[in-house]
């Protein structure tokens, strides 16, 4: 068994699927992200980057949500697919 690779959402490449393991955010933003489906165990797909590189759009809970790197760098998960 290979250890699953843990990466931050911000470091995901287009097509990567990441299973969230940790959210290092607090307060209102944490709650907002939880409401949107960025919960532990959720699978998130990296959809695309904005033309200037930030924000990045993610597919989560059947919707597409864009996050700035300030937030997406604080969400970690196991890389479970490269999208190939």
């Amino acid at each position: 068994m290979v250890q699953p690779k843990i990466i931050k959402l911000v470091d995901g490449e287009k097509g990567n699927i990441i299973k969230i393991t940790d959210l290092q955010l607090d307060g209102v933003m944490r709650r907002r992200l939880l409401d949107l489906g960025f919960i532990k165990g959720a699978q998130v797909e990296v959809v695309r980057k904005s033309p200037l590189g930030d924000p990045i759009a993610f597919r989560v809970s059947q919707t597409t949500i864009a996050l700035r790197k300030e937030e997406s760098s604080k969400i970690e998960g196991e890389l479970i697919s490269n999208g190939e």
Partner: peptide
Amino acid sequence: PTHYTLELPP
């Protein structure tokens, strides 16, 4: 700048 989330609907 504070937090920000933006939905991209189909």
